[in-house]
Design a protein around this nucleic acid. Sequence first.
DNA 1: AGACAAACCTGTCTGC
DNA 2: TGCAGACAGGTTTGTC
Length: 278
Amino acid sequence: MPELPEVETVRRTLAPVVGATVTKVWHSGFPLHLNRPVDIRGLRRAAGAPFARIDRIGKFLLVYFDDRPELAVVHLGMSGRLRVFEPGAGEVPHTHVVWSLGDGRQVRYSDPRRFGFVGVARVGAEREHPSLADLGIDPLTDGLSGAALHELTRGSRQPLKVFLLDQRKVAGIGNIYAAEALWLARIRPTVRAHRLSARRAAALAAAIGSVLDHAITRGGTSLRDFVNATGNPGDYRKHLRVYDREGQPCPRRGCAGAIRRIVSQGRATFYCPRCQQY
DNA sequence: AGACAAACCTGTCTGC
DNA sequence: TGCAGACAGGTTTGTC
């Protein structure tokens, strides 16, 4: 489900809980990511403190609490949702963590597939958390220049689309936006990363920024599951140019090639063989 | 290094 | 209608 634009949309729509005090933290008892247990004792140390601010690095949300030395680290995996519920809201299946607030609202983390992650990191030492330690450049927060992307691609013989999914290089791009950015830059997903010229790297960096910005403007992409923290889906699906459009005509003006689906490193990969020639 | 498969899970859709 | 199988926005781990 969630890539950088969706996670950023969740971050922004969580704003209404900033300032509200956490009274209680509950956990279902189920393990999440990789069957690892949730540190519920750590999460409970937020009780008594108000939500301070919510940051994002790549696909991770960082939830801070006033005057607390620890923060919550949240990854939505494939099917995770972080939502604000008004007092008296009905139960949601597959709910795994609940922050109850003093005003009766709740912030709930639900995740049917349990591929997501909820953990605890130390304020000021966020990057010591194993999930955050190796994350690369965040295109939105840090800015991704053509020169930086070109430098990162040196020495990698991976297909460029596989390279873009590596969170240690660029953090936040997933299967949808890798395909969309490569289409916009007219670059074939199978091109080896080290073959990228400085000029093409600049075009790709710009395409990544453009696609992510546009998707955030539309509230992210909802293929089926994704909703933001207020329960609303994103609108970017109708702007997708190649993802999940196998056999359909390429939307590029004057192209009209047929979108092709291949499998790259086990993931569906969509591109136009006619206009993505580089 | 990198290519692959499997693993972690549930839900949904397709085809027979 | 029912059921098996494929597939899904992610990441880690192990093997070759």
